[in-house]
């Protein structure tokens, strides 16, 4: 059976202040995979996600989500940014932050109502944060903050989820909880794309992987391409030891 293509990237070149960070990337992500993007620091992993999401404008190339430009498919896409990208001392509650996930479908000016609140509460329940809904966000632990971000993305009720290091700085329990949610998402046919740091856990958590270091090194099923050769090409040093645990 022909698999649908969730994300298609062609000839993408991205530059910060005209200094390229991603060169001529072609990437096809089939629907329903749980994919890790791995690569060394400064490889452009976050940049790739941000470009797909339209936060950064590319110099050349195009991105399509289910065959259409991102601007037309926004409602199919959810995003979990890096935890450090926001001010956690902002005066707002966990529930409020999760509600923000519904703002996109509301559009300009319309306020969230009961329906949106229900969506947000359900999302919080899924990540096990319902008990903390009224908590001020600065009073949450790092793992809880990450779960709130995840719940916010769940509230977007999308088909494709982009996550920028959702496992960074979380405790072991949260890590397992988050991974279980990601696997559940995949089971229900969603596509999940995750910037990931910990090479050790790639085979265990993901079924698809993309190696990235300014250029795309390789992409495909973990079973087929997660090997020493690709790791060495991506990281520039021999990675045998790191993976053969």
């Amino acid at each position: 059976m022909e698999q649908k293509i969730a994300v298609q990237i062609d000839d993408l070149t991205v530059a910060y202040n005209y200094k390229p960070v991603l060169w001529d990337i072609d990437l096809t992500v089939p629907e329903g995979v749980l994919m890790a993007i791995v690569g060394p620091n400064g490889a452009g992993k976050s940049t790739l996600i941000k470009t797909i999401l339209g936060i950064i404008k590319p110099i050349a190339g195009s991105v399509s989500i289910y065959g259409e430009a991102y601007s037309k498919q926004r409602k199919l896409v959810a995003y979990v940014p890096q935890k450090g990208s926001v001010d956690w001392d902002f005066p707002t509650t966990a529930l409020d932050v999760v509600m923000m996930g519904t703002y996109g479908s509301l559009g300009w000016i319309r306020r969230p109502g009961q329906k949106e609140k229900k969506i947000a509460l359900e999302a919080m329940e899924k990540v096990g944060m319902l008990a903390y809904k009224a908590r001020q966000i600065s009073q949450l632990s790092g793992g809880q903050q990450q779960r709130v971000f995840l719940a916010r993305a769940l509230a977007q009720d999308a088909s494709i989820y982009f996550m920028d290091e959702p496992l960074q700085g979380v405790d072991a329990t949260t890590e397992i909880a988050i991974i279980n949610i990601l696997k559940e998402l995949r089971k229900s046919g969603k596509t999940v794309i995750v910037v990931h740091h910990d090479l050790q856990t790639v085979p265990e958590y993901f079924d698809w992987v993309t190696f990235l270091n300014v250029k795309k090194i390789a992409t495909g099923p973990v079973k087929e391409i997660f090997n020493d050769d690709n790791l060495t090409q991506t990281y520039g040093i021999n990675y045998k030891v790191a993976v053969n645990k």
């Binding site: 936060i55 990208s85 703002y103 000016i109």
Partner: peptide, 22 residues
């Protein structure tokens, strides 16, 4: 009051706001 929702989300998380299409 009109743009309350938009102001709030921009103050908290500008990049995310952009991905939502604002």
């Amino acid at each position: 009051l009109l743009f309350w929702k938009e102001f709030k989300i921009l103050l908290f998380d500008a990049e995310y706001t952009k991905t939502l299409g604002f």
